[in-house]
Amino acid sequence: MDLRLDNVSHHYGDTEVFRDISLEIPSGQIVCIVGPSGCGKSTLLRMLGGLEQPTSGRVLQLGAPPQGCLNPLTYIFQDFALLPWRSVRGNISLVLEDHKMTPKAREEIIADVLARTKLSEFADALPKQLSGGMKQRVAIARALAVNPAVMLMDEPLSALDSQTRELLMDDLISLWTRQPFTAVYVTHNLAEAVRLGHKIVVLSRRPGQIREVVSLETPLAERRYGDASLEAQQQHLWGLMRDEAAAADAELLHV
């Protein structure tokens, strides 16, 4: 299942958040969205998942979601959004309880996603007992449990320290190589974008428009921390971003 944005524009009252965004999210690929603060990345992601409606333009879903998909468009949130009163198992079970399935089938899904995210030992822990990185792994496990067609991630790693971030990025890459998933990944961090993205969309400052779409050909599994060609891409992206960020800053001074 692909997603397509068709000339999407959005206003909040008088503020024009973004203008005329057209974008294709092909299945099996990770599309990263980068851009200066306030250019509407989170808003765009909310529209992709149906949590908000654009002022004009359309968000289209092309083709049917694959068999066995319980929640085609699934989010992973920056602040994890785990229910503090439910255990790790309970948090994953939450998103399955509204679907018709036998308790045994549900247990199997939970065991499977816990194993894939290396959390089996912590099934009965409460969120308050987990570190930030583990909480985000629980959120990833929860998203995997509904077998999504597209994962929508809004700065999923930015609440974590840089070592945990590296580890989780490796986890995401190995999850993807074992079973390619489609994802839209919003980030501030260009290093993350060049590690994970098949396509990197650079947005301009508000009103957000697409500045450039960079495609990276190196397979995910072969991208290494500190790789020279990735470094070059990152430099290029930073060149684009710097002008926007500087201009956005200057604008703030003039209000």
Binding site: F77, A81, V95
Partner: peptide, 10 residues
């Protein structure tokens, strides 16, 4: 955000 999470999982 917890309520939005619930909605986003349908």
């Amino acid at each position: 955000t917890l309520i939005r999470m619930g909605q986003s999982f349908g």
